[in-house]
Design a protein around this nucleic acid. Structure first.
Lengths: 256, 256
DNA sequence: CCAAAAGTGTTTACCCTACACCCATGT
DNA sequence: ACATGGGTGTAGGGTAAACACTTTTGG
């Protein structure tokens, strides 16, 4: 059989493939998910994840990036985007058999007035509302969001992922605020300081100094992610790729 | 739009959905992957992952379990099966647009004479041969196997997952052999012993005693995975769900 | 001077590695 | 008796949690 020989698509069970994206961001010290109010049937008027059909000439990652850009205006830069998994129960979409490939994303700088495409509206809902089932979602999107949340929480153990919630240059406190929002508990400031400073993937942008707080306080230095060199080698020639770089969740929760 | 209203499948890009499974097992102290020699075009005669088309009335997990059973005869019991991710480059299959949902599995008791369906033959290839590119695989299956391997290695940090390579009842050495095969290095026997004994998810089947080695040696006690109770409570009433249960890869590798 | 946030020092507890040592069995 | 593998004891190093303390700013 030559590669130009094609199958009749109707010989296979008709399946549509969509891509949905769980976009996380932080607003008002709270971890939130972007939801779109559906403007079309089915589930018209209900809240759903941004997403759409896979186009003929794009791969899955490209489709996810496109949907993310269409719905948020955010470009692929400064965004963490990763595949989560696929969902394909036979009856998950009343129209026809639809398998969706779910992605999850971190957007640090999400523009506030989101919305577009066929979406009548958009909102950033706290993840706690979804965890506690205080809102109903279209399709099986609640399950997808819960899985995404679980994955995101694990990925946050890497401070490099957590930094995606921050602007390109950030203070260590800003990074700490990401963890305090995601875990909803306080973190020892001093220990966190050391943890980040010890991590070779973070670089002190020593020239710049961040603004001090609204009611005073010592100004913090700015940091950024060290862009991986050609082979990940450090400046001093040492290469310890497998360090203890995770931020753990142990210890007692203190008042916030 | 009522839920009985259907879309015309041809209104969407024609996509076929398949399911592929990366089956890991251990043979001769070596971690191996099950490959099938393709009996049909495309890639006829080349090695590929077991898999097939998603059927109309099954969900993704069911399709993966079915393919696994068809190709290995192994039932869902005593098998660890988990979704890995989806692969959908537009040109990954020369016939038509195919999105595959990949799964990965651990089979402890894989029957030796595998094969069936449209497969002319089957083999268990050491993962090292795939890592070192010593064999060519059909489609993008090499990429899938590498991703599965990476995922499996991380999952092995949980000894409960590693135990899936063992029979329902096993000695601590048998479990240790799983790590030594997967990591290709030796592990301190005494420390490993303590690690497993300290893990409340493992239960000593005290009545039974495993056979001693071929050339003598103290017989080992048999262990099994504690089936999760209604709320995961321990016998003594304590409940420490978040323990240090991971098996880490640190320390120097000793001779095997 | 005081409040507030950044950053450093220090103590302590815990875990894990390495390795020594004893136990139980087959030959 | 000895080899072999099962199982325990234990000392040392490293890391991280907790918290005290110093530094630098705004009001």
């Amino acid at each position: 059989m030559s590669s130009s020989e094609k199958y009749d698509p109707r010989a296979f069970p008709p399946v549509a493939v969509t891509v949905d994206v769980v976009v996380f961001t932080i607003r008002e010290k709270t971890l939130r998910v972007l939801l779109i109010n559906r403007g079309v049937e089915p589930f018209r008027g209900e809240w759903a994840l941004p997403g759409g059909f896979l186009k003929p000439d794009e791969n899955l990652d490209e489709a996810a990036a496109r949907e993310l850009a269409e719905e948020t205006g955010v470009t692929e830069e400064s965004v963490y985007l990763e595949q989560l998994g696929s969902y394909g129960s036979p009856d998950r979409d009343p129209r026809m058999r639809v398998v969706t490939v779910a992605y999850w994303a971190i957007c640090g700088d999400l523009p506030d007035p989101v919305g577009g495409g066929d979406a009548a509206d958009a909102m950033l809902i706290p993840v706690s509302m979804i965890e506690q089932d205080e809102i109903s979602l279209a399709f099986d999107h609640r399950e997808i969001v819960r899985d995404a949340l679980q994955r995101a929480m694990r990925s946050l153990e890497s401070p490099l992922v957590a930094a995606k919630f921050c602007p390109p240059q950030f203070t260590i406190s800003e990074l700490r605020n990401v963890y305090e929002a995601a875990w909803n508990r306080s973190i020892d400031q001093g220990n966190f300081q050391r943890k980040i400073r010890a991590n070779r993937m973070f670089m002190n942008v020593s020239a710049q100094i961040g603004a001090s707080g609204p009611r005073g306080g010592r100004p913090a230095s700015l940091w950024s992610i060290r862009d991986a060199g050609p082979d990940g080698e450090d400046a001093d020639g040492s290469r310890d790729s497998e360090e203890n770089e995770a931020v753990t969740r142990k210890g007692k929760a203190r008042k916030r």
